[in-house]
């Protein structure tokens, strides 16, 4: 870990933390259900970004597998929530 990449990682971790906080605010106060679904969708994508950043920061490749699994399950859950508010049931 060189100092330049360490500084960039720290800055970017601050940005991602602030982004998670703002998405959490939208998740709390979203007027309708679709706003909350979009907020949840972006919450899992931002957490994937956080895992990638921590993987670079701590020199561990195994964080990438965790990010991949979060992506898979997050896509399934977002699609299920979208189908639920579209049709009223998940599997027809």
């Amino acid at each position: 870990m060189t100092p330049v990449i360490a500084f960039a990682c720290t800055f970017s971790l601050g940005c991602v933390g602030l982004a998670l906080l703002l998405i959490g605010v939208r998740l709390m106060k979203g007027p309708a259900a679709q706003d909350r679904i979009m907020a949840l969708d972006n919450l899992y994508i931002t957490s994937m970004l956080l895992l990638l950043l921590l993987g670079i920061r701590h020199d561990s490749v195994s964080n990438l597998n965790a990010a991949l699994i979060i992506g898979l399950i997050g896509f399934a859950s977002s699609m299920a929530l979208g189908k639920f508010i579209l049709r009223g049931e998940v599997i027809e």
Binding site: T2, V4, I5, F7, A8, C9, F11, S12, L13, G14, C15, V16, L18, A19, L20, L22, I23, V25, R26, M38, A39, N42, T46, L49, L53, I56
Partner: peptide, 24 residues
């Protein structure tokens, strides 16, 4: 390559922050 990686990391953090601000 080190400076390139650092610049890409900073750009990624800023993009995610801009997306969250737009969502809010």
């Amino acid at each position: 390559l080190e400076y390139l990686i650092a610049a890409l990391i900073v750009i990624a953090g800023l993009l995610s922050l801009i997306g969250a601000i737009g969502l809010l």
